[in-house]
């Protein structure tokens, strides 16, 4: 009897294991399929795409397609210049990442380490504004920026990165659980001033939290289409970010090199895909952490 039951226990889940695994593999294929087809199509010439539609076999026209894309920028056919786009998106994304992580860390540190009268209200405020969507403030933001002449300027895209309530929330939770306040006391006794303690002791100890938030901040900024297209309202090519350039491909009806279109889209996602596969484990863990702590 016991043996039979045991056997049942072992053999029954096996069918389920296979079914579940198969289902997951199918989902993974679906998740990757659009990206795979993008890469395949970026390597096909336009005639081939028109004649055959969807195909799963890569061809040899990738370099030609990229050349066409680079020519667009030279001839001014469409405002898509990948190298300029990389540069602009990188300037904005790196600056935002640096400011977000540094100042959110500092704010969280201030709220966790020090006791002051307005500490409670300050933190409640940060929690309360965490959910305010950008869309709600954007009319007032845009009107304000155009009034003080800061449209077509990177500053309104970079400076607001200092105030990131959600990142502060995450960092505070992290500090509460893994930053012993005794260390601050010890540093004081050793004669370290408060800022030095923050930079040379707290930041190194908070590295994991800083790293996760830095990756998320970078990706969010790189992918942002809403704010840059609003602030860089004149669409000057030398200022445009990559997502804006992608949009300009879409709104140009005269582009008939479909293969090159795919190549252009592929070039626009290449950096984030690389970042993702380098840090993927880290990122997935970060999302899970956010789920518990948010």
């Amino acid at each position: 009897m016991n043996m039979v039951e045991e056997k049942k226990n072992i053999s029954k889940p096996k069918v389920l294991d296979v079914a579940v695994t198969a289902f997951m593999i199918i989902l993974c294929v679906i998740s990757l399929l659009p990206i795979y087809i993008l890469i395949v199509n970026a390597s096909r010439d336009t005639q081939n795409i028109i004649n055959e539609g969807v195909s799963f076999i890569p061809r040899l026209s990738l370099i030609d397609n990229i050349k066409i894309v680079l020519d667009w920028a030279k001839n001014g056919v469409v405002k898509y210049a990948p190298l300029t786009g990389y540069r602009n998106s990188a300037i904005i994304a790196f600056s935002c990442t640096f400011l977000t992580v540094l100042f959110s860390g500092a704010t969280a540190y201030g709220v966790v380490v020090y006791d002051f009268k307005l500490k409670g209200p300050a933190y409640t405020f940060i929690l309360a504004v965490m959910m305010v969507p950008v869309q709600v403030t954007s009319v007032g933001f845009y009107q304000f920026m155009s009034r003080i002449g800061l449209t077509d300027n990177y500053l309104p895209l970079i400076i607001p990165a200092i105030a990131a309530p959600q990142v502060i929330f995450f960092m505070r939770q992290y500090m509460k659980s893994s930053f012993p306040l005794e260390i601050v006391e010890a540093a004081r006794i050793d004669g370290s001033n408060e800022f030095r303690t923050f930079f040379t002791i707290a930041i190194p100890m908070m590295k994991p939290a800083f790293a996760v938030q830095a990756i998320f901040a970078f990706v969010a900024s790189w992918n942002n289409y809403y704010m840059p297209s609003m602030i860089l309202v004149s669409n000057k090519q030398h200022q445009m970010t990559l997502p804006m350039m992608v949009n300009s491909i879409l709104s140009n009806e005269k582009l008939d090199e479909i293969g090159a279109k795919y190549a252009a889209i592929m070039l626009s996602i290449l950096p984030v895909v690389i970042v993702y596969f380098i840090f993927s484990k880290f990122i997935v863990e970060g999302v899970a952490l956010g789920g518990v702590k948010e």
Partner: peptide, 17 residues
């Protein structure tokens, strides 16, 4: 990792694709 990937890809590029 694979299931999360679409989330990281630039939404503007996904739409274009």
């Amino acid at each position: 990792i694979i299931m999360y990937m679409p989330n990281i890809i630039t939404a503007a590029s996904s739409a274009a694709l």
